[in-house]
Simulated assay, not measured.
Amino acid sequence: MTLALPRRASAEFAGTALLVTAVVGSGIAATRLSPSDVGLQLLENAIATALALGALILIFGPVSGAHLNPMVSAVDWWLGRRAGTGLTGRDLVTYAVAQVGGAITGAVLAHLMFGLPAATWSRTVRGGSHLLLAEVVATAGLVVLVFALARSGRTAAAPAAVGAWIGAAYWFTSSTSFANPAVTVGRAVTDTFAGIAPASVPGFLAAQLAGGVLAVAALALWYPHAADTAGDVVVPHLTRETEAR
Score class of each variant (00 low, 15 high):
residue 201 V to S: 14
residue 51 L to K: 08
residue 103 A to W: 09
residue 102 G to C: 05
residue 198 P to D: 07
residue 163 G to Y: 04
residue 239 T to M: 04
residue 229 T to Y: 07
residue 245 R to W: 09
residue 22 A to E: 12
residue 38 V to Q: 05
residue 166 I to F: 03
residue 118 A to H: 11
residue 142 L to R: 07
residue 155 T to M: 10
residue 203 G to V: 08
residue 192 T to C: 03
residue 224 P to V: 11
residue 157 A to T: 09
residue 20 V to C: 07
residue 177 S to F: 06
residue 223 Y to P: 09
residue 4 A to N: 06
residue 172 F to I: 09
residue 144 V to A: 05
residue 44 E to K: 13
residue 146 V to Q: 07
residue 46 A to N: 00
residue 15 G to V: 12
residue 220 A to I: 03
residue 139 T to F: 02
residue 153 G to R: 07
residue 153 G to S: 00
residue 39 G to S: 12
residue 162 V to E: 12
residue 79 L to N: 06
residue 71 M to T: 15
residue 237 H to D: 02
residue 76 D to T: 10
residue 152 S to L: 15
residue 226 A to K: 13
residue 236 P to W: 09
residue 199 A to D: 13
residue 157 A to I: 12
residue 211 G to Q: 10
residue 243 E to N: 05
residue 233 V to H: 09
residue 240 R to F: 09
residue 149 L to E: 00
residue 235 V to I: 01
residue 239 T to H: 01
residue 156 A to Q: 09
residue 123 R to M: 13
residue 235 V to E: 02
residue 9 A to C: 15
residue 152 S to K: 14
residue 20 V to N: 11
residue 115 G to D: 05
residue 169 A to V: 03
residue 197 A to V: 04
residue 80 G to D: 00
residue 228 D to S: 15
residue 164 A to C: 07
residue 165 W to V: 15
residue 5 L to S: 01
residue 242 T to K: 11
residue 15 G to S: 14
residue 121 W to S: 15
residue 152 S to G: 05
residue 142 L to T: 08
residue 133 L to E: 11
residue 14 A to D: 12
residue 139 T to N: 09
residue 74 A to G: 08
residue 233 V to N: 02
residue 232 D to M: 02
residue 172 F to E: 00
residue 88 T to G: 14
residue 17 A to K: 10
residue 53 L to N: 00
residue 169 A to F: 04
residue 130 H to F: 11
residue 166 I to D: 03
residue 179 A to Y: 03
residue 137 V to S: 06
residue 189 V to P: 07
residue 238 L to K: 03
residue 75 V to K: 14
residue 200 S to A: 09
residue 115 G to K: 02
residue 132 L to R: 10
residue 208 Q to D: 12
residue 124 T to F: 08
residue 84 G to A: 02
residue 62 P to F: 05
residue 215 A to R: 01
residue 176 T to H: 15
residue 92 L to A: 11
residue 173 T to N: 09
residue 93 V to K: 12
residue 144 V to Q: 01
residue 6 P to D: 06
residue 106 G to T: 08
residue 98 A to W: 01
